[in-house]
Structures are given as structure tokens and as C-alpha cells.
Nucleic acid binder design. Structure first.
Lengths: 227, 227
DNA sequence: CGGGTGCTTGATACCGATCAACCCACGTGG
DNA sequence: CCACGTGGGTTGATCGGTATCAAGCACCCG
């Protein structure tokens, strides 16, 4: 556990396919790779905590990472779930360098870490790389705004419907999907208690959504859109 | 109304004091200025709507701008309130170029608009400027994450207490402040109905918060922190 | 079989949205 | 000077949605 190794061939392929590597010049890619290490983490390991000095930018290669905050009573709220291909902590490259949230693996995960100091230097000097960072920040920012609006405008069944429809292949009116992680994690992502998610699913049965374990079947996409 | 003019001396001072101008080289500043125009807008004017092609990056010089979204029933949710010195739409410089929210002045406002096409070119080529953009994006992103966590973890009185304490001068245990805008706008910013804000204020009377119009007096900062 | 975990279901409580009435400050016009 | 309207804010009553607590269920694995 906590194997901290230089990338192997398999990881290299995963890494260079990331958005984070965008369209970079050969030597930039190499510098980026040299600042990277790959870690395999068991479920529920902490990557860092609120208040820590930010030492790395992270990319998820497999598994999921929960970014969350606590209130003084110790209740947790997930602010983002990062899956394969997602990047986090880019917002600290040019921020105050302090982590403003906690990060924990949801299940066992493989994660690429990029040394913050080197990343900063690279971002300062490489135009392509800083464009990549800006794109990533922009996407994440818009995602966060969307999340706020969803929280404020939508009920639990609507949030779930929205989530399901996001995964819907274009132009189909019936499909099925497999949830990529536990329902309790999905509940957190949607800002719900697990019980509320469960109830939301069962209320969606009325519009043709059936759930068996992680498999969700949708029989009428249009009906779902009306929720 | 809708005076669309090149910046005058007074505006120049306001502009170059902005974060957005960060620490830029002389000629970069000049290029930025040349892409700018200043508009004076009456209250409740739309700057753009969800789905529009993003034509500008904006800086608020005076007044306030509401960024908000609608659900299908027409209910509105504010996702951000921008005041003097705040910038918005930087997230569209390297995004898909489509506005993902509506923008409306809350009261009469003076706003600097920067032509998106020119900004893009500048961001591509100027390191200092792209660093400024990254800082701004990072700050806004962290603000959005904070907003999500607050929505999910805090009750109405807690949110209001949090807002008040944000304005508290360091190391004081009693102070007063003037709300910068209408309470209904503050309610929207905090994700509350106006009635809920009103009730939150009155519930905070118990910990020494008194409100007269826009003036809020806090007699015991520590008590407020316990909420 | 026993025990754990993740999920569902039920009962209840609480919070905040909503609707309606009212208040107050202000401005307008007779 | 007063009648009136208007807009922002407060207050009260009610409703709905979700959290919370508790119990039960399904499945997996030793």
C-alpha cells in the first residue's frame, strides 16, 4: 500500500491520454511526467485535509476521490466526486497554496500526483500547459456553478433524473446504465442523504425507472425529462 | 442609457486598480484597455442570457450584477453576486464560448466590458495576463465550492452569521456594517427566500445582532461565531 | 449458519418555501 | 395637507421536502 512509484508503461498511456496533458509539446510532456508519481491507495485513504499545504496536483487514473468539507459538528458535505480522468487542486497552483477541502478515496484508487512546485514553474513558462490549466479550471468552475443551481432549484427526484439523463446516449428513448460507484456516494454527490436517494429512485419508478443493484433501466427518456 | 464609451480618466483609475489588471507590463495594459468599453446600465438590465454566445469578459466598476439560472418553471437561483472589482465570464475565454447563466444588473451599474476575441488572443500570448486569469478563476472556483458546502451544511441563521462575520474587521468583538445592497439580493446570494432571510436576522437578535434598514450591528462577535 | 455491509422502508421532526396579510417609508397628485 | 399607490420588508399560517432515527431486508462471505 501507498506504493509511490514512477509511472510504468501502462500508467504512461493512461497519463498521456488525460485532458491534463492536453496538446503539449514533447518536452513539456516529459517535464510533466518527471514531476509525476503514481500511487495505489486502498479505500478511504486521506490524500490531504482542509488546511494542509497543497503539495500536489492530482489526476485520478482509476477509482474515485471524494472532495468534501466538514462543519463544526463533524457533518460532511461532498463538494465534488472525481473519477478517472478528473483533475483536482489545479485551483491551488496560483492560489494561496492551502487546501480548502478534504480529499479521500472512496474505493481503492490509482492516482497520479504532480509535484506542485514543478507544476507551478511549468505553468509559469509553458503557454500550452497554462491553457490546459485554464480549460480545466473553467470546466470545473462551471460544473460547480451548475451544482449550486441544481441544489437550489431541483428536488431530489429531479436531481436524480438529471444525473441519469446526463449519462443517456444521444437520441435514444430507452437505455440502461450501471452506476459507477455506491449509491451512498452518489447521494453525497447530489447533496442528499442516502435515504433520500433511495426514495427518489422509487418515486422515479412512476416514470419508468427501475433499479436493480447498480443497474438503472430507463424505459421512457422523455417522461424522465418532464420531471 | 447604454452609453457605450471608451474609458475616461476616472474609469481608467478604476480599471487599472482591478485584480484583472494584476501586474501587467505597460503594453499589455494598453492592449487590455483598448479592448475595453465602459457601459452605464440602469437597474435590471440584462447583460446576456443563458445560451448566448459570450462576447465579452466583464468587470464591475460600480453597482452589482446578479448571475443566475432558471429552472423550467421559471424560478430563479442566484449563483453569484458580483460587486465592484469582481470579474465574470473569464471561464468562457477557454470554454465553449457559450454563456451558461443569465446576467442582470441588480441596481444601476457601471461595467467594463472586454472584447472576448481580443482577450483570448491576449491570454494566449501574455504570461502575466494568463496568470492573472488563472488566479481569478481559482478564486472564483474556490468561492463556488464554498458556496456548495455552505448550502449543504448550514442553516439560514448560520449562513447569515457567516456572511456577517466575513465582513468583520479583525480582532473586534463589536462592530456594525452597512449591507451593500437590498436584502432581497442578499437573500438570493445566500440561497434563501427573502422571508427566510428576515427570519434569520430576527433569530440572530438572540445573539446580539440588531438590524435597522441596511445597518447591522453586532454586539458580541464570539456569540455569533457559536451559531 | 452467523455476521457484516449497503440499501430500503417507515415514522417523525425540522427547516425553509410559499402564500397572504400587514407595515412602513416614500413619492405623487389632487 | 391628505389620499393614494408602490416597493421593500416583516410576520404569521401552512405545506412540502428532506434529514434523522430506527428497524428491517438482501446479499455476500467467512
Amino acid at each position: 500500500m501507498n506504493k509511490d512509484i514512477k509511472p510504468g508503461i501502462k500508467d504512461l498511456n493512461a497519463l498521456t491520454g488525460l485532458h491534463f496533458f492536453g496538446e503539449l509539446a514533447e518536452d513539456t510532456s516529459m517535464q510533466l511526467l518527471q514531476s509525476a508519481s503514481i500511487v495505489n491507495l486502498p479505500a478511504r485513504s486521506m490524500l490531504f485535509r482542509n488546511g494542509d499545504t497543497a503539495s500536489h496536483v492530482y489526476c485520478v487514473l482509476s477509482g474515485y476521490v471524494r472532495l468534501y468539507l466538514l462543519n463544526k459538528d463533524g457533518r460532511e458535505a461532498d463538494i465534488r466526486i472525481c473519477g478517472p480522468g478528473d483533475t483536482f487542486n489545479e485551483c491551488l497552483i496560483f492560489g494561496d497554496g492551502i487546501c480548502h477541502y478534504n480529499a479521500q478515496t472512496a474505493e481503492s484508487a490509482t492516482i497520479a500526483r504532480f509535484d506542485m512546485v514543478r507544476i507551478r514553474a511549468l505553468a509559469e513558462h509553458d503557454r500550452d500547459f497554462s491553457r490546459t490549466i485554464m480549460k480545466s479550471l473553467s470546466r470545473n468552475f462551471l460544473g460547480a456553478l451548475d451544482c449550486i443551481a441544481n441544489d437550489r432549484l431541483q428536488t431530489a427526484p429531479q436531481r436524480v433524473a438529471h444525473y441519469i439523463l446526463d449519462q443517456c446516449p444521444r437520441e435514444s428513448d430507452a437505455f440502461s446504465l450501471r452506476l459507477p460507484y455506491q449509491k451512498s456516494l452518489l447521494a453525497g454527490k447530489l447533496g442528499l442523504a442516502p435515504e433520500a436517494l433511495s426514495r427518489a429512485f422509487s418515486s422515479l419508478r412512476a416514470v419508468g425507472v427501475t433499479v436493480h443493484g447498480r443497474i438503472v433501466q430507463v424505459s421512457d427518456v422523455n417522461a424522465l425529462k418532464q420531471i
